[in-house]
Amino acid sequence: MIQKKDTALKNAEASVKSLRAVEHHYCAGCGHGIIHRLICEAIDEYGIRDRVIAVAPVGCAVIAYEYWNFDVTEAAHGRTPAVATGIKRVRPNNIVFTYQGDGDLAAIGTAEIIHAANRGENITVIFVNNGVYGMTGGQMAPTTLAGQKTSTTMEGRSLRRDGYPLKILEMLAVLPGVKYVERVAVNSSHEVLRAKRAISKAFKMQIDGKGFSIVEVLSMCPTYWGMTPIQASDRIKNDVAIFYPLGVIKSC
């Protein structure tokens, strides 16, 4: 008997209730599609879809609400954790998560993320790090690697002119309000499965009322890395994950 497998391992839209059955606008090989699905799978597995309130960022994932089948609000660029704080404080029984890119979280919203983390807000943050501003045309992000070419670092990121790539997770991990910090990637099937476990864990921390949890996902942006999706996934393994090491940084 041939039978469909359930949940994660088959067509996402047919099985994941939290994910709408629509095609998304992301470029070929972009990691957002995978990360959206992992979040939705975790939400379905915990059966919390009807309690979730998501805060979407400004960036490529700004219209994530077109793909997610639960309550979503937009936020101004970088203010995502402040908006999530407001929601979670008045609705502590809802599950509140933010979905943020590297520009949103690590540049314009640095104050908001650090203070939401430091207050120990019981929210989950999914931080997508692809090292560029995708929506605006591939400018340098705070996480852009040294030497990486972007539309504002055409000769490659110069540490002298542009400063250093920001390891925001390592900064956040020292804060006592932060309870779970893990960095994962979505460049291969195995890494995707690890990412899935990390995202599930981060939601579990919130469900259990443990406090602030954040998962950084190293993701591909083939378009603005000027690569094929396969080259981009190799770049994560060979370059990006060397500078931003994968694994659990803090768990308590």
Binding site: T73, T85, G86, I87, K88, R91, N94, E112
Partner: peptide, 9 residues
């Protein structure tokens, strides 16, 4: 922005 969130809620 916190006010934004709480109002949205």
């Amino acid at each position: 922005n916190m006010v934004f969130g709480a109002s949205a809620a």
